[in-house]
């Protein structure tokens, strides 16, 4: 089965798909879309594929996905043999996954927009976006702090899910929009946990973790 991602390298939403594909070792092809400066996502050809004029677009045999959350869900349902990234057999956790998937849209609408403003000069209501971004980060920080007290590292339970992948990019990229992570210790710890996963993938603005030097003693 061929999976094709219409991709823009600087988009946090496109990165969600690239990241999950990397974590789950899914093969896919990309088609570069000239989002900036070309505005190609608003071109006739792409509007035909996605009338909403947004990225990413994911095309698989028989499906054209235009909503990032649906892409993540579909990829996990079809390519995760462990059934943990979309925990279909755990209805309690699944409810929380859906809740945090929805929350990820608020991050895109606030931090995502603010980032487009500060990086690519997109015209937006900056003050409203700043305010909204901080409210989202506080809400996330508060939830992750409660999770830590319970000894839980991830958003919805003891394992990472598509919800963590969906909330990760714009949270991690908030410094691009001028919002540092200093005030959010639980978020920092969660970001670190995600970046420590096997097959983690970087993007501009999200750097690789520095490898810790081995503590093993070298025999003389």
């Amino acid at each position: 089965m061929t999976i094709t991602l219409y991709n823009y390298v600087l988009s946090g939403n496109c990165y969600k798909i690239r990241l999950l594909a990397s974590l789950l070792d899914i093969n896919y092809e990309t088609i570069a879309v000239d989002f900036h400066p070309g505005q190609e996502h608003k071109s006739k050809a792409l509007l035909k594929l996605n009338p909403a004029g947004t990225l990413p677009i994911l095309v698989t045999d028989g499906h054209v996905f235009t909503e990032t959350k649906d892409m993540l869900t579909w990829l996990a349902q079809h390519h995760d043999q462990s059934n943990t990234w979309w925990p279909a057999n755990n209805s309690d956790q699944l409810t929380r996954v859906v809740q945090w998937l929805e929350f990820s849209s608020r991050l895109s609408a606030t931090i995502g927009e603010l980032r487009l403003n500060s990086m690519l000069n997109k015209a937006i209501d900056v003050e409203a976006a700043k305010h909204g971004s901080k409210i989202c980060l506080r809400e996330l920080e508060s939830h992750l702090t409660e999770q830590r007290i319970k000894g839980i590292q991830w958003l919805s339970g003891d394992n990472p899910t598509v919800a963590d992948v969906a909330c990760f990019p714009y949270t991690a990229l908030s410094p691009d929009a001028g919002i540092e992570h200093d005030d959010y210790p639980s978020i920092r710890s969660w970001l670190h946990a995600l970046r420590s996963l096997d097959n983690f993938l970087t993007m501009p603005g999200i750097h690789e973790l520095h490898e810790l030097k081995s503590t093993q003693k070298i025999s003389p």
């Binding site: 823009y8 000239d34 070309g38 190609e40 990086m119 410094p175 691009d176 501009p204």
Partner: peptide, 22 residues
């Protein structure tokens, strides 16, 4: 290479620098 590929390659490089510069 497509124009979009060429542009994104350069943007990728430059935005990797951006967070360092700031």
């Amino acid at each position: 290479s497509s124009m979009a590929d060429l542009i994104q390659f350069q943007q990728l490089i430059f935005v990797q620098d951006r967070s360092i510069l700031e």
